[in-house]
Design a protein around this nucleic acid. Structure first.
Length: 1034
RNA sequence: GCCGGAGUGGCGGAAUUGGCAGACGCGCGGGAUUCAAAAUCCCGUUGGGGCAACUCAGUGAGGGUUCGAGUCCCUCCUCCGGCACCA
């Protein structure tokens, strides 16, 4: 990329006082460093001023990639720096730190390619980032810098993990949080649980459930459990636990792949090797226990509503029921009661807990009578049990192919549904009917119970599936008549389905009657349909309705809304909500089900089979016991390894990954108290370090605690957190979860970490597309005129489009070049002036000189370019009213815009001010000095230099923000528009505070308005004070 | 596919949240200054018609609500972000 501005050498001799961004920026950056201008004190430190309010403004810290910063990164940093500098000037103690998210996959992959250790490349990358960030003049307190990959940091990431490993979730615990709010559910130390149990206060039931009472009625005391059972009991409840979870296992690469690394053929993006979706032992975080609190606490956060909505959808709370469908081979329904195969009657809730049942979750228990088949996810443990021998080959084949498909692909609604019959049957518990059990991949193991009752009459996916495999479809909800009518009149009847299922006569009959009733067919409109209904309600009742009730498959879609119960025995006629309530009650009585809340949110897979991450601070014993490494032995340092690659193994899905750490033999094996233990060879995901870095910034050098309690209490929460919307769900949800766990355990004093969140947009870049749709980078594009572009190699015409900056497109803009040519202040102003902070917008280097010009113009307000002295136009005279109005408008606008994070319009106000002052022959200091203060947050180097030249000896970083006078910030007279019937006919000048009557009179007196309403009667006059008058006349 | 967001002059965008569409900047055109250029300053710049006063159209497309819609509602199109092991 080349910038168009000429270099200094090419220009004619520089005037002595020209704006020299290089000298100024170097000077002030050195000054800030030397003076430690932005060093922030913690409570308790000498000089800390407790009388000031605090403000914690934080950026999403960057991942230091090898490419260095591109112009997209600093967008948010410019914004937070403006806020940080502004808040300091408003008298706040400001915490504004920066650090690096330095563990992770890209560093490891780069290291594998180049054979340079990730620790080395990461350090070098951090150095580059730091240099670039300092170059931009951000007011970070660099003494608080941290990186997640340094042992003094990850020592406490491991400490947090150990706390979660040693915690269990007590969902029944109701307690007042330290901030006074009542919370239900709490992570508590495992030791507390063990104490309750071993003291005999609590006991254990047959399914290893907690009984909050001493042992009785078959419940066992803790001491009666075997050590293995005790361990199992505890492990099942830990916040951090180990479980078998399906992952993308690629034996040829020796590693587990991210979904994005797997192509849609089920092969690895890199190398095209087979990938198997198979369960592997993984560390998991029990985030699902926090689903309800993560959802509820969203309410009070000052976050963008769309982000909250995305988190709500992600958590995906639904209410419904869990219901068991007994397997037909194991149970029967005879003489009004359930019996085992050998005829023994079932008692109590035995069925509900029995293993020979299919447990399903449904949000629509009111449609239980419409369940005509069941579907198990291919991974469901019951698949093997229900499949009959003659169906086994087909089922096995199906399960095998399903393993290669991603969840995304499996649930895509465009895809043709697939599935196979297992040969097995279950019994519908509400009516005792035998229904077939299928396996299909549109059911996911990870959601609900991994099995569904299929109600094809009232669920879109089941409806499609049933039609495809000719499974029975029955109606159990009566839709509103209008729905049936609309189906007939707009979408028509599924003739093909009717023919196949031998219902040929029914639609004919239906349509004939419809036409008889309506008098028209085919071309009927939706409005007409209503009229037809009104005219002959009997038609729907007598013809269309019975036909639908007999077979809802006649239409092209299922009715999925609420309605009235039908074909449901004694529940017939109940409206959906009441039906749900009643049937859940009945299921509970019968021991066949219960009301349930379900979440889409899944537990968090917390291990990676990678080298460059935090080692787990745990030891595995030979007998299956896992213990946390004692705190005083932390950190468990990542061993130095020459070879940090994964180990490829034979292409056999049953192989097990050997993470790189497993090869560090001396590191892995540990002896404790005569026993041999093994370290965990997995590492934590990159999210781990970023889940609590905002806490470490508060007290980054504390060797004893992740963060001092007093400092945490003072600085929490983060008042403003700015970063890209691509983190809307995952990082922000994981961090909230992590924070709540620390909160429950008493380590932090607030339930939420980030009070206000703002999502910056993405900076894009122009790219070019040829007629075949290929993208061409700007380096290969020739311009002709303003808007014609050609491929410089082939001569083909190209169209300009906006695309993500990427190395592949060669459209990445590096801030170093921009800063070198125009300076950091121009760079900051340009980034902020591009548009609203939250919008994505294309970088256009052509526009940068406009902001450079602004810097020059501001410079010349103070400095005489020829001499380098103060400008002769600068006077000590009292400013006149016009000058004061200019200033006070600017103060009001800039302050309000910074508070609202609308930096682009704040800069427009700078232009307005400068345009105004440029026209003035004499420039009173009384308006120039305050204006320099306004500019400070945006262009701090320029402002510091001007401030000094204006005769001030101290940095203006802590000068008070100027105040404005409301009377001077508003014009005394305003122009308002006068409309007649919404069309503007005149503009009149009136006093700004003129009342409605005055405005109306002035408007009606205007000649143009009188002309427009001549001969008409004025019906109404709408007056909006200070805005417009609209005369309605006819 | 599902969830979320966005479409306004040649370009980036503004619009006090239902009240004068196009603030401000870039670009472009014209002028002043200059031997000339750069820089600077001034004027113009949504499109159509008109010498002009003025007038008609106009915020992705179509419909609706309203005295009044860029803004609210419905349908559709295009682009961007996320979809759990990229972070």
């Amino acid at each position: 990329m080349s910038t168009t501005r000429q270099t200094d050498e090419k220009r004619t001799p520089r005037a002595a006082g020209a704006y020299d961004h290089r000298a100024i920026e170097a000077k002030w950056q050195a000054y800030w460093d030397r003076q430690q201008t932005f060093r922030t004190l913690n409570p308790g430190e000498p000089g800390f001023d407790a009388s000031r309010p605090k403000y914690y403004v934080l950026d999403f810290f960057p991942y230091p990639s090898g490419a260095g910063l591109h112009v997209g990164h600093p967008l948010g940093y410019c914004a937070t720096d403006i806020v940080a500098r502004y808040k300091r000037m408003r008298g706040f103690n400001v915490l504004h730190p920066m650090g690096f998210d330095a563990f992770g996959l890209p560093a490891e992959q780069y290291a594998i390619q180049t054979n340079v250790h990730p620790a080395i490349t990461t350090r070098a990358n951090i150095d580059t980032y730091r240099r670039q960030l300092k170059m931009l003049g951000f007011s970070y307190d660099w003494s608080r810098e941290l990186a997640t990959c340094f042992p003094d940091y990850y020592k406490f990431t491991q400490w947090c993990f150990a706390r979660m490993f040693e915690a269990w979730y007590d969902e029944a615990c109701a307690w007042p949080g330290p901030d006074g709010r009542r919370v239900v559910g709490r992570a508590r130390p495992v030791a507390e649980l063990e104490q309750q149990l071993s003291s005999g206060a609590w006991s254990v039931d047959a399914t290893l459930g907690i009984v909050r009472a001493p042992a009785a009625d078959g419940n066992r005391a803790w001491s009666e459990l075997s050590p293995a059972e005790q361990r199992e009991f505890i492990n099942r409840r830990r916040l951090a636990y180990i479980d078998e979870i399906p992952v993308n296992w690629c034996p040829a690469l020796g590693t587990v792949l991210a979904n994005e690394e797997v192509d849609n053929q089920g092969r690895s993006e890199r190398g095209g090797h087979p990938v198997y979706r198979r369960p592997l032992r993984q560390w998991m975080m029990r985030i699902t226990e926090y689903a309800e609190r993560l959802l509820a606490d969203l309410e009070d956060l000052d976050w963008p509503e769309p982000i909250k909505l995305m988190q709500r959808n992600w958590i995906g709370r639904s209410t419904g029921a869990e219901v068991v469908f007994p397997l037909a081979g194991a149970f029967s329904w005879q003489d009004g009661r359930w019996r085992t195969r050998d005829g023994r009657p079932i008692v109590g809730r035995e069925l509900y807990f029995h293993q020979d049942v299919i447990r399903i979750y449904t949000t629509r228990p009111d449609t239980l009578f419409g369940a005509t088949y069941m579907v198990l996810a291919p991974e469901h443990p019951l698949v093997a049990r229900v499949t009959t021998p003659e169906h086994r080959p087909a089922v096995d084949r199906y399960v095998e192919t399903a393993r290669h498909r991603s969840d995304l692909e499996r649930t895509a609604e465009t895809r043709l549904k697939t599935g196979v019959f297992t040969g097995g049957f279950a019994i519908n518990p509400v009516n005792g009917e035998r229904i077939p059990v299928w396996v299909a991949d549109y059911v996911l193991m990870g959601y609900g119970t991994g099995a569904i009752m299929a109600v094809p009459g009232h669920d879109t996916r089941d409806f499609e599936f049933a039609k495809q495999f000719d499974l029975p479809i029955i109606a159990v909800v009566r839709p509103p008549d209008a729905w049936i009518h609309e189906q007939i009149t707009t979408r028509g009847v599924d003739e093909d389905y009717c023919r196949r299922t031998g219902r040929a006569r029914l639609p004919e009959q239906l349509l004939n009657s419809a036409s008889a009733a309506a008098g028209i067919i085919g071309g009927i409109t939706a409005q007409d349909a209503t009229a037809v209904l009104d005219g002959d309600a009997g038609w729907v009742n007598q013809v269309a309705w019975p036909v639908y009730a007999a077979g809802p498959g006649i239409f092209h879609e299922a009715y999925c809304g609420d309605g009235v119960g039908l074909n449901s025995g004694r529940f017939d006629g109940l409206p959906t909500p009441e039906f749900k309530e009643r049937i859940v009650g009945w299921l509970e009585e019968q021991g066949l089900g219960r009301g349930a809340v379900n979440y889409k949110l899944r537990d968090w897979i917390f291990s990676r089979q990678k080298y460059w991450g935090e080692p787990f601070p745990v030891l595995h014993g030979e007998d299956g016991e896992t213990i946390a490494v004692p705190d005083d032995e932390l950190p468990v340092e990542l061993p130095q390894m020459e070879n940090f690659r994964p180990t490829p193994v034979a292409d056999d899905e049953h192989t097990v990954p050997a993470p790189p750490l497993a090869r560090a033999k001396e590191w892995v094996s540990v002896t404790r108290g005569g026993k041999t233990w093994t370290r965990d060879a997995n590492t934590m995901p990159q999210w781990a370090g970023s889940c609590w870095y905002y806490l470490r910034f508060i007290d980054p050098h504390n060797e004893h605690r992740f963060c001092g309690a007093e400092a945490e209490k003072y600085w929490s929460p983060v008042d403003l957190y700015v970063g890209g919307a691509e983190h809307a769900v995952l990082h922000l949800l994981y961090a909230r979860f992590w924070h709540k766990a620390l909160y429950d355990l008493g380590y932090v004093c607030r339930a939420e970490p980030f009070a206000k969140l703002f999502n910056q947009g993405m900076i894009q870049a122009f790219a070019y597309r040829n007629a075949r749709g290929s993208l061409i980078g700007p380096d290969r594009v020739a311009h002709r005129g303003e808007d014609q572009f050609f491929d410089s190699q082939t001569g083909e015409p190209l169209t300009r489009i906006v695309a993500k900056m990427s190395k592949a497109l060669n459209n990445v803009v590096n801030p170093d070049e921009i800063v070198s040519a125009f300076g950091a202040d121009t760079f900051r102003l340009y980034e902020m002036y591009m548009g609203p902070l939250d919008a994505s917008k294309p970088w256009n280097t052509q526009d940068v000189p406009g902001l450079y010009k602004l810097c020059n113009r501001i410079w010349r307000l103070v400095v005489d370019v020829d001499t380098g002295e103060l400008s002769p136009a600068l006077t000590d005279d009292a400013p006149d009213e016009a000058a004061l109005r200019l200033l006070h408008k600017a103060i009001r606008k800039v302050g309000a815009d910074i508070e609202a994070l609308k930096f682009n319009t704040a800069i427009a106000a700078f232009f307005d001010f400068v345009n105004g002052v440029t026209r003035m022959e004499r420039r009173p200091r009384g308006i120039i000095e305050p204006f320099v203060l306004l500019v400070t947050p945006f262009a701090p180097h320029l402002a510091e230099e001007l401030w000094q030249r204006l005769g001030h000896s101290e940095s203006l970083a802590y000068q008070s923000w100027p105040a404005y006078d409301e009377a001077l910030a508003r014009d005394p007279e305003v122009e308002i528009a006068v409309q007649v019937l919404g069309k503007i006919k005149a503009r009149i000048m009136v006093a700004a505070d003129a009342d409605e009557k005055t405005l109306e009179a002035a408007a009606l007196a205007d000649p143009a308005v009188r002309e427009a309403i001549r001969g008409k009667t004025v019906r109404k006059v709408i007056v909006v004070k200070g805005r417009l008058v609209n005369v309605v006349a006819s």
